[in-house]
Design a protein around this nucleic acid. Structure first.
Lengths: 344, 344
DNA sequence: TTGAAAGCGATACCAA
DNA sequence: TTGGTATCGCTTTCAA
């Protein structure tokens, strides 16, 4: 049924070692021998058994990707990029979805660690202790999160928030709301910090809401609070939350963008397919995924595979993709005079 | 570094066979011996090496999942369910995204076939010839598609279309547009067939558009054609296309749902997060994924693993999830009198 | 109930 | 440049 290296060896009248070499280091075999072997292999339809190879070499050429929710476009986009890049480098990808249960995350990662060469972790809410444990179990790269001593690839979230703040400032707004993401979310905390600084510098009043789970419903719920507090612009933790806000605003008769500016984060399909489309901070997720794989593979393919110095890649290609489609008027036209208010 | 079965055996003063048995068939070992072995295993932190086990037993406890685009919520939802169910059954999942390139699909599947126990294929556009070849390479289950002699789990798309047609009929519409999906898409063809029959029976005039790639842009493009042709209701191939339609309708000043009814398919997050939310034919994707895994595992865990009779599961729990949120008036209120027009 | 030993399919070291 | 063979870690007869 399945043709092994031994059969090829027999057919080509060489030893199994030689056949193996023909695939691993072709140069170490004389040309005509190699020819003969490859021909036999082709004729017999031989393909190396990756499992057997893995057992022998101790590496699986498999990467483990752990995400909180593959049904979330943010993570799905990353997964897509990771998968594509990994395949290009001849690595297979194990996918694990933790279903947003931070408790199981570490355990799952630990289990997976034994089956793969490296772990790609998108785990915004895993504790640093757990993370430390996981990282000890296998080479790992953190996505969209940073931690000392661990390789990571993250978007410059601070930059994104600042851009969003500048955007709403340019539209003439003075009071900005920020909807935070999940409690303990690394990127959410990062954004909160960045928002405070940006608003201070831009002379914007800032009101924060949350932390809240990054879901549509959270936006729906937060909308009324925002309305009560008085901001005229909102930056939401992600696009789903932003759409939740918009939905509730519509119910309350608050028109977007006429009465209220809403800015999402991540610029997923959700933002692009809304009518009118949602202004959103665009994060190059595919680039994030690609770079994570590259970093991982670089570590793995290093000959002296031990040192593995932690390396951090900060992706900075963030942009604000502005709403398109049938807009109505903007709330407050930008003033031509430059003012520099300052608030405690 | 890594603790093996031999070390456990030594520590518990038994043979490796016994240790192995303790995990594989605990009943075949005397209680106190088992106790001693498990204790030693725990103390040493032993966990069986899955690779080695795979090599020995010839099975990997890994499933391969092939999807056209994991960045598409439809497939992501399936992937999520598959992943969860597989893990529950102690199977790992290899994910492969073909990036909507039907050409590479078969090759990828063939490659994957050698590393997994079974293949879960979401490949609406793969040719039947290729499919036949793939299916010969490994046990396979088709998702959302049916083919003779191959196990599959599919949604009753016909049922969904009929429900959509009944829905718009109930709203008083007389002329329905159907936006077809990708050329060669199995489910698209299925829906077209179902739409014709349903419209005939319901006395609705039907105009079909497409085939078109199932993307937002296709909806945008089709909107003008629909407007020109006169239907007052549209059933789109999926939610993305539906949102594209709505986007363009808005630009053209056509109000949804006042002037035009739009029904999506799949009821993804996209439909739910739109404002107002999009009426969509809801397909229980998680159930599809779950059943596919169950079917696969049932086949795999069959002792006399050869026969594997093709089995088809037709998921019929489709529903129409109606738009919620700030609606405006409906176009044509349903008439109280029952009419039964008939058109050739 | 337990153990010895032969694989599973490839790799890689050491000789030739 | 090639071949023999031990090895990777576990499973699974077959005997004891």
């Amino acid at each position: 049924m399945t043709v092994t290296i031994a059969e090829v060896a027999a057919a080509a009248d060489v030893s199994t070692s030689t056949v193996s070499r023909c695939f691993a280091q072709p140069d170490a075999v004389r040309a005509d021998t190699r020819e003969r072997v490859l021909e036999a292999a082709r004729r017999l339809g031989y393909t190396p058994n990756r499992i057997a190879r893995s057992l022998a070499v101790g590496r699986t050429r498999t990467l483990g990707l752990i995400v909180p929710d593959i049904g979330n476009l943010f993570f799905a986009s990353i997964a897509k990029a990771v998968q594509a890049r990994a395949r290009a480098k001849d690595y297979a990808v194990f996918l694990a979805d933790t279903d947003e249960q931070p408790g199981d995350e570490a355990e799952l990662a630990l289990t997976m660690a034994k089956q793969v060469d490296g772990l790609l972790l998108v785990a915004p809410r895993m504790s640093e202790d757990e993370l430390t444990e996981v990282v000890a179990a296998a080479p790992a790269v953190l996505l969209n999160r940073r931690m000392d001593g661990v390789s990571s690839v993250a978007a410059a979230g601070a930059e994104g928030v600042r851009m969003a703040a500048e955007h709403v400032r340019a539209l003439g707004h003075r009071h900005l709301a920020l909807i935070l993401g999940a409690r303990n979310s690394w990127s959410s905390m990062e954004r909160s910090r960045a928002a405070r600084q940006a608003c201070e510098e831009l002379g914007l009043q800032l009101t924060e809401f949350g932390p809240l789970p990054p879901k549509f419903g959270s936006g729906v719920g937060a909308a009324d609070l925002v309305l009560a507090a008085g901001p005229t612009a909102v930056v939401a933790h992600n696009d789903m939350v932003a759409l939740g806000l918009i939905s509730r605003f519509a119910e309350r008769g608050v028109r977007v963008p006429d009465d209220m500016s809403v800015v999402g984060c991540d610029d997923t399909l959700l933002a692009r397919t809304a009518t009118p489309s949602l202004t959103s901070v665009s994060i190059p997720l595919d680039s994030l995924g690609r770079q994570a794989v590259d970093l991982m593979v670089r570590t793995l393919d290093q000959p002296g595979h031990r040192p593995a110095p932690a390396e951090t890649v900060l992706e900075s290609g963030l942009t604000v993709r502005r709403s398109t489609g049938p807009l109505r008027t903007q709330a407050a036209p930008p003033t031509a005079t430059t003012t520099q208010p300052h608030r405690s």
